[in-house]
């Protein structure tokens, strides 16, 4: 098996040892990565799902992660906001190290938004309540402010008229756009997407991708697990190819599409690009 060709310039110490004021400034300016994964390993029992993942993402970058089913893409993206634990290595998000400490987990979860394949909207709450719940309960915003922000976001994703409906009354594409608005309502610095269009009918994929492209162009830092290569070509800064718990290859989209280095990448791309 060939060694991974992923180069990561930053070490965890570089970020953690920098005094806090300078740290956030450096991240803001793009001198330090906003997400750093360093030698991350994870096991499910005896099964080694993540086998030394290294990745750095700078502010405003759009990262696309792709690879065969079971390669650990979801597992990895879920370690970033600690929906999954990992056993070895380090992950530093916005200068905060993920540790067992509950407070750090909650801090990081406030800085990251996540969009799931199955939408995971709260079916007993209206669209408006779905979007305002976390700002009101976690950020302690007054209801009026939360609703105003929510309405702007619903306009941004193109469904202001659905605010009083329940998720069950919406189409899949509409539900996923609500999910994006819900994540954005917490004003996160990083957005994580785990196959956001895989559960959608073809005619609804575009409406969700359009929202994501607009978000990318507005400068949001995004990590996206997806096989929508059109999206990757349009907005990704870098792509990472996962296979069997490792990053096999990474690079800008032009390079990945026109000149992939690894045989496994070539084979996989030929399968999904027909």
């Amino acid at each position: 098996m060939s060694e991974t060709v992923v180069e990561v310039k930053t070490t965890p110490e570089q970020i953690l040892e920098m005094p806090e004021e300078h740290r956030s400034e450096a991240i803001e300016k793009g001198e330090l990565p906003i997400v750093l994964a360093h030698e991350v390993h994870k096991w499910y029992g005896n099964f080694h799902v993540l086998r030394g993942i290294n990745m750095e993402v700078y502010k405003g970058e759009v990262i696309v992660i792709f690879g065969p089913s079971g390669s650990g893409k979801s597992t990895f993206i879920r370690t970033i906001n600690r929906l999954e634990e990992y056993q070895k290595g380090k992950i530093i998000v916005d200068g905060i190290e993920l540790s067992r400490d509950i407070r750090n987990i909650e801090k990081i979860r406030m800085e990251t938004g996540m969009v799931f394949q199955q939408f995971n909207l709260f079916p007993h709450l209206t669209v408006m309540q779905n979007v305002t719940l976390a700002p009101i309960q976690v950020r302690k915003w007054p209801k009026a402010k939360a609703e105003e922000v929510a309405m702007q976001l619903l306009k941004r994703v193109g469904i202001p008229e659905q605010a009083d409906k329940f998720p069950g009354q919406l189409s899949g594409g509409q539900q996923q756009r609500v999910a994006i608005a819900r994540a954005l309502a917490m004003q996160p610095k990083i957005m994580l997407f785990d196959e956001p269009t895989s559960a959608l009918d073809p005619e609804m994929i575009k409406e969700v991708l359009d929202v994501m492209i607009e978000l990318a162009e507005s400068g949001m830092t995004m990590l996206v697990v997806t096989h929508e290569m059109g999206f990757a070509r349009a907005v990704a800064n870098r792509m990472y190819f996962f296979d069997q718990g490792q990053i096999v290859e990474s690079g800008p989209p032009e390079q990945i599409f026109t000149n992939p280095q690894e045989d496994r990448t070539k084979l996989f791309l030929s399968q999904i690009l027909h």
């Binding site: 906001n81 979860r109 799931f116 909207l121 976390a134 309960q137 976690v138 917490m186």
Partner: peptide
């Protein structure tokens, strides 16, 4: 209640108590 419900709540930054109180219990009781 599907696991995705609490995961979505945690991902938004809700605490364990808030997740139970606002998301899980209302659906379970219904």
């Amino acid at each position: 209640i599907p696991k995705g419900q609490s995961e979505a709540a945690w991902a938004l930054g809700l605490s364990g108590f808030q997740t139970t109180f606002f998301i899980i219990l209302p659906q379970a009781l219904r």
